[in-house]
Design a protein around this nucleic acid. Structure first.
Length: 449
RNA sequence: GGCGCCGUACCCAAGUGGUAAGGGAGCAGUCUGCAAAACUGCGAUGCAGCGGUUCGAACCCGCUCGGCGCCUCCA
């Protein structure tokens, strides 16, 4: 999501962005899984790629310009490998091709590692056919039962790093601007990409590298062994909020910290993100209403928007400081509320809402028309015990709007009669359905889910 | 052992030399039949600890402590 925001901000700033996301659709794990299930690798990968797209969609992460797959670039990979062999940076052993790190003096520049240090840490089971323990495979000869492609070195498949170099060069050219990834990829993956690409082309590979920090769970790392591992999918399945709202909350939460640092995930953190977003959407609801009193001060509105725009872009320009950028929007929210107390014309309200929308496009926030955070009603625990399939049955219960409006009107009548008991009962009834009421000074009532 | 990221109030979090943004929660007040929302006020003499440099340090230097990542055919 960090890179989605980066892309959005670059576009907001007037750049034309080509965003390429590489998929590795052949490796040991995939082959193993395909064999276990008795299906093709393609079946396995397309299933996961589809699931990935679904999850990204829920987070409103935009699709990349290109999403190349390794298996669709075998020719590019072979060509790149040949270039490296011709330059004396790679060698062939029994149908395998290895990159020779000792022939590439810059190796270790990105990760600030020296080959000597790496040797000390290298583990025991070094392939003896390699000239240096850190040499890595560009091409692997195929064993029986593995998918294979023809190559000058015999049937085989690409190594583990070459595909990214080949695909980047194909879709972005030999030199491009920004390469991103998790911090765990710095070594060896990104280091190897540089070695392969610069080695072959003699040109710079990526001008800038951006690495994001990790998600932790309650201050612990997320891992299967600790049993605290979960997926985005599960967050959505377990969420008591609607999908659109959950996606927004997740985005807000992820934006609340700098991409570089660790991010501690917890129910409380999500709750806080939701509460903060409530404040924004409450404001948006008020901005949607037509001005009952008119008047207002369009001048201070423009001033407030300009001021927040300045802080917002300053923050984003400063290494994508989304936390400070969000703070700028909170400042705007506060300013808007103050202006609204004084009174803003209907037109000014639309201007204000539009300002939030345009900042929101950059962060992927504030685009929802309704903030229906209570739409999903989770079944009672007793029902969950039943071995139903799917195990968690989500029941969606929504009152039709006309019905709610009727109740609200009835309550206003009750209030006029000063029958506060009846009024409170209606409010309680609606609350149990997740509908909150707010009485406005003019005697009307606004409701929200 | 080597290379990194991080440690700021109850919680989240910005701030890389000029005297601690912002949000959430909480408390008090305004408004209100009550509530909700909004607004106003309160809230770290201190930024993991110790020492140093400086007129001045959360920020620079050194050491220590704590959390996490990488150093491996997961990409």
């Amino acid at each position: 999501m960090v890179f989605d925001v980066l892309r959005r901000y670059l576009e907001y700033s007037g750049y034309a962005v080509t965003f390429v996301k590489n998929f590795t659709d052949v490796d040991d794990k995939i082959i193993k899984r395909a064999n276990e299930q008795g299906v093709s690798c393609d079946t396995v990968t397309s299933k996961y790629i589809q699931a990935y797209h679904e999850d990204m969609g829920k987070l409103r992460i935009r699709a990349a310009t290109e999403e190349p797959k390794a298996t669709e670039h075998i020719a590019d990979i072979i060509h790149l490998t040949e270039r490296l062999i011709n330059k004396g940076l790679a060698y062939v052993v029994d149908g395998d091709v290895y990159f020779e790190v000792s022939q590439y003096p810059e190796y270790g520049r990105l990760s600030k590692r020296r080959l000597e240090d790496l040797q000390a840490g290298a583990r025991v089971d070094v392939d003896e056919r390699k000239r240096h323990p850190m040499d890595f495979a560009l091409w692997k000869s195929s064993k029986s039962g593995e998918p294979a492609w023809e190559s000058p070195w015999g049937p085989g498949r690409p190594g583990w790093h070459i595909e990214c170099s080949a695909m980047s060069i194909r879709h972005l050219g030999e030199t491009f601007d920004i390469h991103g990834g998790g911090m765990d990829l710095i070594f060896p993956h990104h280091e190897n990409e540089i070695a392969q690409s610069c080695g072959a082309t003699g040109k710079e590979f990526a001008r800038y590298w951006i690495h994001n920090g990790f998600v932790q769970i309650n201050k612990e790392k997320m891992s299967k062994s600790l049993g605290n591992f979960f997926t985005i999918r599960e967050i959505f399945e377990k969420s008591e909020w609607s999908e659109a709202v959950t996606g927004e909350i997740l985005r807000y939460f992820l934006l609340s910290t700098h991409y570089h640092g660790p991010l501690d995930f917890s129910d409380q953190a999500l709750k806080e993100a939701k509460n903060a977003l409530n404040g924004f959407y409450d404001l948006f609801n008020r901005l949607k209403e037509t001005a009952e009193s008119g008047g207002g001060d369009g001048g201070s509105l423009q001033t407030a928007i300009e001021r927040s725009k300045k802080s917002f872009t300053q923050a984003m320009d400063d290494d994508l400081n989304t936390s400070a950028a969000v703070a700028a929007l909170q400042g705007l929210r506060s300013d808007m509320n103050k202006l609204l107390r004084v009174g803003l014309s209907t037109e000014d309200r639309q201007t204000a809402r539009q300002a939030f929308r345009s900042f929101g496009v950059v962060l992927g926030l504030f685009q929802l028309d309704r903030w229906d955070f209570n739409v999903r009603i989770v079944p009672k625990p007793a029902q969950l015990v039943l071995e139903t399939f799917p195990p968690t049955v989500m029941v969606t219960k929504q009152m039709v709007e006309a019905e709610i409006d009727g109740k609200v009107a009835e309550r206003i009548e009750a209030k006029k009669r000063r029958d506060f008991k009846r009024a409170d009962d209606i409010r309680a009834e609606l609350k149990s359905l997740g509908i909150a009421l707010e009485d406005k000074p003019d005697g009307t009532t606004r409701w929200k889910r």
